[in-house]
Design a protein around this nucleic acid. Structure first.
Length: 303
DNA sequence: CTTCGATCCTGGTAGC
DNA sequence: TGCTACCAGGATCGAA
């Protein structure tokens, strides 16, 4: 399940293998993969054709590639050079999405949804493959003046904890203001982005916090500590290429990450806590699961 | 306004 | 073996 570290691995792959290339053609093989592009598949392809892709960016679990300005001959007279990009292609991997750079002659993947061919002789193409079709690609206007070309439809997504501009004071204030519980808050992408079920459980285990702890009871040092654990676990995952339980998450070259071997909480029901040896527990939670140590992570008194 | 549950989707697997 | 039921879960939407 791609969360921030996995998406960042993919971003780096796009930056290396796709940035600067000009789109020759786009084939949309499954309409659901393009559903966020309201104008439809034909419009998506037509708008991308002939455009050069800029620097790969990421916020939380979202990825995007700004479209570089049209060639100077087509640029209206008087347009200053170096202005912020005004369009960007946005990608979300959902639960099972993959962006793969493949040779043209590689066999189509079973769940190939979108193919992007380029106008160069590199011999590779970009493929969006997605079994469960929660992910997709789309084209959007960017937030005016944003130097990274942030797509307007994700302007409500909070900065992520690895973003140098992440506002720690605002995060803490929001936690105190909200009447919710800590894991819910971590998964709320408008408060902090990039954290999903896996890294939430990992960070809470490291911080010795129960998932149902009301955020209003967190002191400033406690929330700062939690944030540090979130960053630590994400950096550790990034260092080994992310978390792959199966073939559903891979980098652009189809390779898995190894962080699943380092997980302390997620998926460890009945296994001993790596700190105290107590059997880890799994609890149904919000249509998914929460893994925690019943001894290290005591439930709040009022629940 | 905030909070919260239902919903989308498909392949793998547990259980009978 | 073959069937059913359930599970994984990010983001969105509408209800309370």
């Amino acid at each position: 399940m791609p969360e921030l570290p996995e998406v960042e691995v993919v971003r780096r792959g796009l930056e290396r293998w796709v940035r600067g290339r000009t789109v020759a053609d786009v084939a949309v093989l499954h309409p659901r993969a393009i559903r966020r592009h309201l104008a439809g598949p034909e419009d998506f392809a037509a708008q991308l054709r002939g455009r050069r892709l800029g620097a790969a960016r990421r916020r939380g679990k979202y990825l995007w590639l700004p479209l570089e300005a049209e060639t100077p001959a087509e640029t209206p007279a008087g347009t200053p050079l170096g202005t912020a990009p005004d369009r960007a292609v946005l990608a979300h991997l959902g639960m099972s999405g993959q962006l793969l750079v493949q040779p043209h002659d590689a066999l189509d993947e079973k769940h190939l949804r979108i193919r992007v061919r380029f106008a160069d002789a590199t011999g590779t193409e970009l493929r969006f493959v997605d079994q469960r079709t929660f992910g997709g690609l789309s084209l959007h206007d960017t937030v005016p003046g944003d130097p990274d070309g942030l797509p307007d439809v994700i302007a409500h997504i909070a900065r992520d904890p690895l973003d140098p501009a992440f506002d720690e004071d605002a995060f803490h204030a929001a936690l105190r203001r909200r009447r919710t519980t800590v894991k819910r808050a971590l998964l709320d992408q408008s408060l902090i982005s990039g954290v999903g079920n896996i890294y939430a459980d990992e960070a809470l285990w490291r911080a010795r916090l129960h998932y149902d702890r009301p955020t209003a009871t967190l002191t400033r040092p406690r929330s700062a500590e939690l944030l540090t654990h979130i960053r630590d676990v994400m950096h550790a995952a990034l260092a080994v290429g992310g978390t792959s339980f199966d073939s559903l998450y891979v980098n652009v070259n189809g390779e898995s990450g190894y962080f699943d071997r380092s997980l302390d909480a997620y998926g460890r029901e009945d296994e001993p806590c790596r700190r105290c040896g107590t059997a880890m527990r799994r609890r149904p939670w919000m249509n998914r699961s929460s893994y925690f140590c019943p001894r290290c992570q005591r439930p709040p008194r009022v629940s």
